[in-house]
Design a protein around this nucleic acid. Structure first.
Lengths: 147, 147
DNA sequence: TTATTATATTTGCCTAGGCAACTATTGCCT
DNA sequence: AGGCAATAGTTGCCTAGGCAAATATAATAA
């Protein structure tokens, strides 16, 4: 069949699995009454760790591109979870800060996130995680090498 | 930090890696002069294997939901790569068939797909693939259990 | 047969995320 | 200083894919 010609069709497995991961996380957030998406969680938790980052810093750490970060932050600002403040030294940049509501939202969301991760990793252990990271990061790096 | 509380943050790795996989595949298809997306490839190759499937069958095998399949097929029909034909026994269904152009497109796309997979799996071997499948399918199943 | 339920597909509305083009700044080079 | 490249961010246009609701048809129950 087309799928196997000596090559490994890992993309299809990544795709279907990530879809389930996102679905489960999204549903748990909703059940918890937290109105954010998994992608928004990534940005919010990044700010919770290190508030006041610029959009490009958030993009680098979350591996999202600039337009995507820009639009997610638009939504988060509209929901009142973050705000953009001017950067003192560089007028092109903004500092992005969590509002108080934003911080509370992160804290309310966390149990749902942790529960979802726990469910996904059932039947697997720490050594599987090391192996998983080795393989998936190798794939990632294989595509990250500048041509 | 938030990311590690004993739980495994596998979602972030799946996310960033899949994004690279799609990007590389998309770029290679474009270089090859084949005007389809990685998602469209999944549907087209499914039809190449088994022509005339219904949309729900394509959805089941590609793990895409009904609206997504419907819209991808809209696009493929607009490009002249597939066509919808009525189902003799069930008038709710369609048979989806590749056109001649569609078949040729699959054949022209295949080298790009295989090259991308090969690049992604560099430095990894068959036994890594078995391990990868075990872990990722376990995650998938953990989320697929009803309830 | 009729009423109810289930299935196949489509559509509307939303977020995420590609690419490319654009603006505003900043930094560097001469 | 003046010119030019690089950087930060935004916007437009596109596809993918969630959910929910709608339509059409089929299958089943009463």
């Amino acid at each position: 069949m087309l799928d196997e010609q000596g090559t490994k069709n890992f993309g299809a497995y990544l795709d279907r699995t990530l879809r389930q991961v996102r679905l489960d996380m999204g549903r748990r957030l909703k059940e918890q009454g937290v109105d954010i998406t998994p992608e928004q969680w990534i940005i919010l938790s990044g700010l919770y760790e290190n508030d006041g980052q610029s959009q490009s810093e958030l993009g680098d750490s979350s591996f999202k591109n600039a337009p995507t970060v820009s639009r997610i932050i638009d939504l988060l600002c509209k929901k009142g979870l973050t705000r953009r403040l001017p950067h003192a030294e560089d007028r092109r940049r903004h500092h992005i800060y969590l509002t108080d509501t934003g911080k509370k939202t992160v804290e309310r969301a966390l149990p749902a996130i942790l529960a979802s991760r726990e469910k996904g990793w059932q039947g697997l252990d720490d050594s599987d995680y090391q192996t998983f990271l080795r393989i998936i990061n190798r794939i990632f790096q294989n595509f990250s090498e500048q041509e």
